[in-house]
Each structure stands twice: as structure tokens, then as C-alpha cells.
């Protein structure tokens, strides 16, 4: 009976939680903080993954591609914010439309350049270790380490000069502006950081997945689920939500099919969201 609730491979569950964290952290900045209904988030994950693939194709090093990917995604993100999103902060529904349109353009653009044929990014480590009876692929362990490090960095960043400025602009952009903080610059940097982290997550996840132009889409729903369930703007909430959603999905996948597991996880998310006001009162 107990085996029904215990995962066969606990590390896979941990890796899935880390993946949920990694794909959601970028959205924390664009959606959680800037209130942009960012439907192009999945495409920045895609940009990161294809950047890793392209660099590997040019220079033969997937690791170099993974290092470069976040910068490419951040640059494209900064440009998109400057050109398209900057004028829409007071109109969240319009951001939904614009980011949806942009996601189509990016996805189709990538399909035009790279075709719809599957692509592969090499695992930079491609080794595994055995610990506590589990076989642990080192690249998956790296994903866990990077995800946790990023969360720690983001939490620490909140207390720095830059982080306080970011939080000030998010809380009261007009007041921040009258105190000499450029809300435009801060918003661009926040969106670029979000896109950069999305790009990094795409590049990190590329070696353990097959790439196609639809690659980013499969992470979009789960990243929104994590940010919304964890309360937009809260990194700690996001951490808990990633553990709840990623953990339950990881465990369920060992017992039921992935489709059912995802359905149950969605149900959990709906129930928690529904009960959250009650839980906050307790």
C-alpha cells in the first residue's frame, strides 16, 4: 500500500520540481512583477533552447550555447519590451494579445529557419552517478543546482540596490519616477531578466528533450500554474507551488499515465486557488 504513494525514483521528482522552478522563475518577473500576461514566455524558453542548438552547430559545444542562451533571450526580450510592451502596462489584456501575437511570430520564425524536424542538443556532461540506490544523471543534477541557485540569487537580489529599485517601481511606478528612478529602464531590465532566465531554462532543458518549434509551449501552462498558485510576485510562494505541483506530478507519473497525472495536478491547483482565501484567514 505504501508503495502506491512513494515514488520509484525520488530524484526524478526532485528534478521535476527543479524544472518547474526553472521554467517559472522567468515568468515571476514578467507576469508576477510586471503584470504582463506573458504568453510569449514559452517562446523565450524556445529561443534559449535553439540558441544552444545553434551555438553547438557552429562551435561544436553545447555548453557554450547554454552559457550564451540567456544573454540572447534577454537581449531579444529587452527589444520586445522597448518596442511592443512598454506602452501597454496600464492595459494588461492588451499585453495578452501582443504577447500571443509575438509568440506566434517567434515560433513560426524558428520553424522557417530550422524546419519542424526534431533537433537535439548534446548533454554537456552525459554521465551519471549512483547515490542511495538511485541512478542520478549529472545534467539533471545540474538543473537542480542551477534552479536552486537562481532562486537563492533572486531572493538575495531583492535586498540589493537593484532589487529595492525593482520592487519600488513595481509597487508604485509614479512615485518611483518622482524619486529619480526611471520606470522605463527598470521595467525593461525586469522583462529582460525574466526572458534571460526563460532562455537559460530552455537551454538547460534542451539536452534532456527533443527540440521542435512547439518546445516552449509545453512549459507555458505549468509555469503560469506555479506563479499563480504561489501568488504572483512571491518567490517563496513560487518555491512552495513548484514543490506542490512538480512533486505531485512527479509522484503521480509513476502510478498513472502522464495525462491523468497532469489532470490531477490541475485539479489540485484549482482547489488550492479556490481555498487560498480561506487558508489565508486561518
Amino acid at each position: 500500500m505504501l508503495s502506491l504513494f512513494l515514488p520509484v525514483d525520488s530524484f526524478s521528482v526532485v528534478a521535476l520540481i527543479a524544472t518547474f522552478l526553472l521554467i517559472s522563475l522567468g515568468l515571476h518577473y514578467s507576469f508576477g512583477l510586471l503584470n504582463i500576461v506573458n504568453l510569449v514566455h514559452g517562446e523565450f524558453i524556445l529561443i534559449g533552447a535553439y540558441t544552444a542548438f545553434q551555438i553547438q552547430d557552429w562551435f561544436g559545444s553545447s555548453l557554450l550555447g547554454i552559457v550564451v542562451a540567456p544573454f540572447v533571450a534577454a537581449l531579444i526580450g529587452a527589444f520586445a519590451e522597448f518596442v511592443l510592451i512598454r506602452r501597454l502596462y496600464m492595459r494588461p489584456l492588451d499585453t495578452l494579445l501582443v504577447t500571443f501575437g509575438l509568440s506566434l511570430v517567434i515560433r513560426q520564425g524558428i520553424q522557417l529557419i530550422y524546419t519542424a524536424n526534431p533537433k537535439q542538443v548534446d548533454d554537456p556532461i552525459s554521465k551519471s552517478v549512483t547515490a542511495l540506490g538511485f541512478n542520478i544523471p549529472l545534467w539533471r543534477l545540474m538543473i537542480v543546482v542551477v534552479a536552486l541557485s537562481l532562486v537563492a540569487i533572486c531572493l538575495l537580489l531583492n535586498q540589493t540596490t537593484l532589487g529595492v529599485r525593482w520592487r519600488a517601481v513595481v509597487a508604485n511606478p509614479e512615485l518611483a519616477e518622482t524619486m529619480g528612478i526611471s520606470r522605463n529602464r527598470v521595467r525593461t531590465s525586469l522583462f529582460a531578466v525574466g526572458c534571460g532566465i526563460a532562455g537559460l531554462s530552455g537551454a538547460m532543458l534542451a539536452p534532456i528533450n527533443t527540440l521542435s518549434p512547439q518546445f516552449g509551449l509545453r512549459f507555458l501552462i505549468n509555469s503560469f500554474l506555479v506563479v499563480i498558485l504561489g501568488k504572483p510576485g512571491s518567490i517563496k510562494g513560487m518555491l512552495i507551488a513548484a514543490c506542490v505541483l512538480g512533486g505531485s506530478l512527479g509522484i503521480l507519473q509513476f502510478h498513472v499515465s502522464t495525462v491523468y497525472a497532469q489532470m490531477i495536478v490541475l485539479l489540485v491547483a484549482i482547489i488550492v486557488t479556490r481555498l487560498r482565501p480561506l487558508l489565508q484567514k486561518i
Binding site: 540596490t161 529595492v164 529599485r165 520592487r167 519600488a168 509597487a171 508604485n172 509614479e174 512615485l175 518611483a176 524619486m179 528612478i181
Partner: peptide, 17 residues
């Protein structure tokens, strides 16, 4: 009105200022 940043401490306001 609306002259403070929600979520920031007094000290963080002073640091910004």
C-alpha cells in the same frame, strides 16, 4: 496620497531616497 511603496520598509524607502 499614495506616497509609499507597498512591501518596502521605512529603511528601504530611505535608502532609495
Amino acid at each position: 496620497e499614495n506616497g509609499v511603496f507597498a512591501g518596502l520598509t521605512v529603511d528601504e524607502h530611505l535608502r532609495l531616497a
